[in-house]
Nucleic acid binder design. Structure first.
Length: 294
DNA sequence: CTCCAGGGCAAAT
DNA sequence: ATTTGCCATGGA
């Protein structure tokens, strides 16, 4: 999580992560850490009662995908000779979700076609202007802006943050859809099939196939969703020598086929591989295997 | 200076 | 039905 160097939605300090969420319209600021056996949660700002405790536990469980048994995924990784290393090197890595669907959509629209660092700084500007700041351990952490607020932003305001006019229009439009109840996380989750969920999302202006799949993966936890065509994913596939070029769709399809139901996790692990320097990636020609204690 | 960024839309083939 | 031009700016 600490690779989100510029993320204003949570902070990482050693092995402690801080965040603010809204429970029944009330902000709750908390820290999450761990000892050898347990996750440790501390509420640092906000009322503590049974409801808050229960909902915060539920949030964290969903946020870091705690209830998922990822052993089957590791079995699949182990069945692939050039991906096997991931089961060891990234052991325990779980999908970090963006439970708030509005936030997930805004974030993915912001991130379209620009580098991640710039995307983080655009998000920060949006959040600083319309969100609510809280201070945890002397550092500001924000509650993501409410759609009811963002819907009244003007294109010019967002342009001043250096978003394109398009991004500005998309974000304001999405905020309106949430504010008037046209779309909600509940409504998306109620749609029964993956294909229909993609259709519902891509019906929104600014949401194409990439964004729909990104959001299904990160917010809805639809694990068969994968943003094929994603620039980062393609680069990871290239560096693993699993495709010969970025238009090698058949090879990608073939690679993902055995991972049915775990496509999101495979993408997640490929993204993770991007933060590892390429010279430590196993060269499949020379080093087909690596031992556990390597 | 050039090319690419965790793309998508609308106009032009 | 597919391809192309465009968006705006930061990094490499």
């Amino acid at each position: 999580m600490d690779r989100n160097y510029d993320d204003c939605m949570h902070h990482v300090n050693g092995n402690i992560v801080s965040k603010v969420i809204s429970i029944n319209q009330t902000p709750v600021a908390f820290t999450l850490g761990a000892d050898k056996k347990n996750l440790l949660v501390e509420i640092v700002d906000g009322e503590v009662n049974d409801t808050v405790t229960r909902q915060l536990t539920h949030f964290i469980t969903d946020w870091i995908d705690l209830e998922r048994n990822i052993a089957p995924f590791y079995q699949l990784l182990n069945g692939h000779k050039s991906l096997r290393y991931m089961a060891d090197d990234f052991y325990g890595l779980r999908l970090i979700a963006i439970p708030d669907l509005f936030e997930a959509l805004c974030w993915s629209v912001i991130g379209q076609q620009i580098n991640l660092k710039f995307a983080y700084s655009l998000k920060r500007r949006l959040v600083e202007k319309f969100g609510k700041p809280f201070v945890i351990n002397n550092r500001p952490v924000y509650l993501f802006p409410d759609p009811a607020i963002v819907q009244h932003a003007s294109v010019d305001e967002l342009r001043a943050m250096q978003m394109t006019s398009r991004k500005a229009e998309y974000i304001i439009g999405i905020a309106k859809l949430f504010a008037d109840g046209t779309i909600s996380k509940e409504k998306v989750m109620a749609v029964s099939s993956y294909k229909e969920r993609v259709q519902l999302l891509t019906g929104i202006k600014g949401i194409g196939a990439w964004t729909a799949n990104y959001v299904l993966m990160k917010s809805i936890k639809d694990l068969q969703a994968a943003p094929y065509g994603d620039a980062g994913l393609l680069n990871a596939l290239l560096s693993h020598k699993l495709i010969k070029d970025k238009t090698n769709f058949k090879a990608i399809e073939k690679l993902f086929k055995p991972f049915k139901g775990w496509e999101s996790y495979l993408v997640l692990y490929f993204w993770r591989s991007l933060s590892i320097s390429t010279d430590v990636l196993p060269s499949t020609d020379v080093l087909p295997l690596r031992s556990k204690d390597e």
